[in-house]
Amino acid sequence: MSDWVIKVSNLNKYFGSNHVLRDINFQVKFGEVVSIIGASGSGKSTLLRCLNGLEPIQSGEIVVDGVKINGEKVDLSRIRQSIGMIFQSFNLFPHMSVLDNVILAPHRVKKIPRREAEEIALELLGKVGLAEKAHSYPYQLSGGQKQRVAIARALAMNPKVMMFDEPTSALDPETVNDVLDVMKELAKEGMTMIVVTHEMGFAREVSQRVMHIDEGRILEEGTPEEIFYHPRNPRTRAFLSKVINI
């Protein structure tokens, strides 16, 4: 067993004739927190969606937890169980209570008995500070609360890695920190995380590694220290000067 949970080699992705990801190579170690930064439309979200098979890739290889996920005869559902995915727009199921949102997949996919799944769900909702909302419906929650429920829902599948696609971009400013705090807590517990984010503070504080993606390429990669204080690439420097106002 290698210590890599995700390994991407020579990944290329096109939307029609538009080459959106170009020769992407990177690896993520168990327990590592990697932030992906870059301008809108640079391909960061698309990269994340490729990693759990929501987007097909045209060439290259993606290995998650020792299993190659692209190619024929791949059981994507099985692989996705070990990858938690958090979306910018939450995507809670509006016709179910918070509790039912969290237990749906463990109960139906992993066949965990309902009662047991409920216990796990309540524990996870407690962990994200929303135990008292278990019987509310998504429309009764604020954006920050919805995103925390989404995190609990993903954690309920006991994933090996959590991926966050701009988790705070759709939130009111006052609820951003509640979500970031939950993510920091997760990082502290040793969860492997890949975070596409515009929150430079979070990327700097929490991640061990930062990747700057620009026009579908990994332009620069390094520790937060290297990327934020000593960026080598002029385009990275230009990007950071636009998004960080110190």
């Binding site: 929501l54 994507l76 169980q81 995915m85 199921f93 749906l104 993903a154 599948m157």
Partner: peptide, 9 residues
């Protein structure tokens, strides 16, 4: 997408 991402078929 959210449902598929949870590992459901």
């Amino acid at each position: 997408e959210a449902a598929l991402s949870l590992g459901m078929s």
